[in-house]
Design a protein around this nucleic acid. Structure first.
Length: 422
RNA sequence: GACCUCGAUACAGCCUGC
């Protein structure tokens, strides 16, 4: 059993969930008696594969085989449901535990709070927080961190800040993750100043900001005038002895895309700087830089970066193509946009709708409504399903070209295809 | 030997305000 477990642990660490499940199935066939730990691995694996039914089913299966599920079994199932979008089932499992004579513990509630958060149910997350306290289960730092994240992903930055204050009242120590989560919540809520204020508050409370704290603060710089702020934070973190990584740089490069189209040189410089420091720019860094060039009307730079990506053996995917096509379109280079779009076929990945959408936008801007209609047809041939964005862009192109009949035709077409006009 | 929390990339139009 020891050796089997070591093997399962190894597979889990490397994220080989399918193999892990295959191995367990094989073990069963060989009449190896699975213990409660092994079942937890199985429940966890099904969760990672978003197969919550399988995960929950195992709680019964194991019992039938004489292995009584314990608190960890349930906690693992709660997580599995949460990541599969089944937050309600996660919450229900807390009750199931009690029905089976198990007491949900702090990890059980933390998992359920997190499950609510991942599904943007901030109110349910807060209800669970109240419920656990009413039951005499003391929330810990992770509980609050999960609740703050729940508010953040639900767009409720004020509530996130409220929870930070509540922690003080309840004498629960915030840690670096608490602040990082709050910074992100503020950033997502468009509250850059507040995000930076929180970064400043950390040392006052004896918490040293780490690379994630700074990166989250940089990522909060998304208003038109905040590129300089992002660059300043990047410098500041270096001075503080926190080494920026690829995420820090990518976030700063992204901020350059918000600088009224004037910050593309900074984006290029950051890209060079990171490479010089031995941090190989990844697809995210390149795409962010391509976008910054695009909004600055620098289609040649965008194309150059795109080629450079390929030379660095980064295989451009949907995001990279969409970024560069959009950059071309923004500069009126609709022919380049179409050329790039058509180049995507046969590159060995599944082309999604976004590159098509941006190509349509490019043609629209170029007054090429006929090309727009052609692209729509190509989508059909390629089996790419247009979305409401596709049709809206195409209709806008017809409007620009005074092609009202085509516009009406598209409206009817989207209706036929079951895409709801908005 | 099994369970919980944090950071970066692409797409439309319309309306309102500046």
């Amino acid at each position: 059993a020891k050796r089997y477990s070591a093997c399962l642990s190894e597979l889990a660490q490397h994220g080989h969930w399918e193999i892990l499940l295959q191995m367990l199935a094989l073990m069963e066939r060989e009449n190896v008696v699975l213990d409660v730990y092994m079942y937890s691995y199985a429940i966890s694996a099904w969760g990672k594969l978003h197969q919550w039914e399988k995960a929950v089913e195992l709680l019964d299966t194991m019992e039938q085989r004489g292995i009584v599920p314990n608190d960890v079994s349930f906690n693992t199932a709660i997580v599995a449901c949460g990541v599969s979008g089944q937050w309600r089932k996660s919450v229900d499992l807390l009750q199931d535990m009690e029905r089976r004579g198990l007491r949900p513990n702090v990890v059980s509630y933390n998992s359920a709070v997190s499950a609510c958060g991942q599904n943007r149910r901030w109110e349910d997350a807060l209800l669970l927080l109240e419920e656990m306290m009413a039951k005499g289960i003391t929330p810990n730092t992770i509980t609050f961190n999960s609740a703050i994240a729940a508010c953040g992903t639900s767009g409720r930055w004020q509530e996130a800040l409220g929870l930070l204050e509540q922690m003080t009242r309840e004498k629960v120590q915030p840690d670096v993750v608490t602040y990082n989560t709050v910074i992100k919540a503020c950033g997502d809520g468009g509250q850059r100043a507040k995000a930076i204020e929180m970064l400043r508050e950390m040392p006052e409370r004896g918490i040293q900001p780490n690379v994630i704290s700074y990166s989250a603060a940089i990522a909060a710089c998304t208003s038109e005038d905040s590129a300089d702020q992002a660059l300043h934070l990047l410098t500041e973190m270096k001075d503080a002895g926190v080494t920026p990584n690829a995420v820090s740089y990518s976030s700063a490069i992204r901020a350059c895309g918000y600088g009224h189209g004037k910050k593309w040189p900074d984006a290029l410089q950051l890209l060079e700087e990171m490479a010089a420091k031995g941090i190989e720019p990844n697809e995210v860094a390149y795409c962010s830089a391509i976008k910054a060039c695009g909004v600055g009307g620098q289609w040649e730079e965008a194309l150059r970066l795109f080629k450079e990506m390929e030379q660095h053996s980064l295989k451009p995917g949907n995001v990279a193509y969409a970024s560069v096509i959009d950059a071309c379109g923004a500069s009126g280079r609709w022919q380049d946009a179409l050329r790039l779009l058509r180049q995507m076929n046969g590159k060995g990945f599944h082309v999604n709708v976004v590159p098509y959408n941006v190509a349509i936008k490019a043609c629209s801007k170029g007054g090429e409504w006929a090309s727009v209609m052609q692209v729509i047809r190509e989508m059909e041939e390629m089996g790419v399903t247009p979305t409401v964005v596709t049709y809206s862009s195409a209709i806008a192109a017809c409007a620009r070209g005074r092609e009202w009949q085509e516009a009406l035709g598209l409206l009817r077409l989207m209706d036929d295809k079951g895409v709801k006009p908005n």
